[in-house]
Design a protein around this nucleic acid. Structure first.
Lengths: 136, 136
DNA sequence: CAGCATCCACCTGGATACTG
DNA sequence: CAGTATCCAGGTGGATGCTG
């Protein structure tokens, strides 16, 4: 997909798994990414934009429970990180369409695989919880 | 920090991507999983346990910046969710080993792929940020 | 329609001190 | 060694009301 050319240059590896190098001062890559995308709504927004661009209120309707404020904040943050595009058509009333950038599309892939895991295993996690809480 | 066990019901699909179904009342699977694993330390702990079991203080040393409290809390939470095992050997001083369950090993896979993405693309995200902030 | 502004309750996680 | 207990600052996100 993207050129991983300069990969192992800068960061000293403390772990073998890519993306989890701890380095002095800098957070490891995956923490940095999760700090931006690991909030309550970002991932849901990304998934909802994966197939096609969507307008603000349509997006709001498709993500159950999200407030207007949080949708705005989340979209702004994703746009800032280069994952989402914002297109305004100066009609009346205005139409604003949000879509994924190439970068946004690419992160949707690993996110989707985490989603698959979640769909297959959340019941197992729930059961583990109940069992654990019984022993308390 | 306790969540009373609530109803688990059949979930209607609202989106096509597995793991992202929105449903009334129930959170979609991936949000439920991220609510447990998306905190500051869980993922780092999982990765550090992936290769072999590790004792408490060794784990603490290998995760830069984690406090004793947060390591305890995180491990307890992961154990509760059935991702981590805790083995106590009643020696003096006590030895406590933490390792991944089968479930824990399986989630490490999608997490690792997200880690790869992060390693390859965090620079792009950083650049997007800088560019965005300049226009503001 | 697509926001922004404000106020605020809650939760996360850091610092610190003490224990079997 | 492997925790527990307590206190507290800062951030996250909900509710509400107003605008071009």
């Amino acid at each position: 997909m993207n050129a991983p050319a300069k990969a192992s240059a800068a960061v000293p590896l403390l772990h073998t798994t890519p993306g989890f190098e701890a380095d002095g001062g800098n957070t490891c890559p995956i923490r940095e990414v999760l700090d931006r995308v690991g909030d309550t709504w970002s991932i849901l927004v990304i998934i909802n934009l994966q197939e096609h661009s969507v307008r603000f209120n349509a997006l709001k309707r498709s993500i159950e429970g999200i407030s207007q404020r949080m949708l705005t904040v989340t979209l702004r943050s994703l746009e800032r990180d280069g994952l989402v595009t914002r297109t305004v058509r100066p009609t009346t009333p205005p139409e604003v369409e949000y879509g994924l950038t190439e970068l946004g599309q690419s992160i949707a892939v690993p996110i989707a695989s985490l989603g698959s895991w979640a769909a297959s295993n959340r019941d197992r996690m729930r059961q583990a919880r109940e069992t654990f809480d019984l022993d308390t």
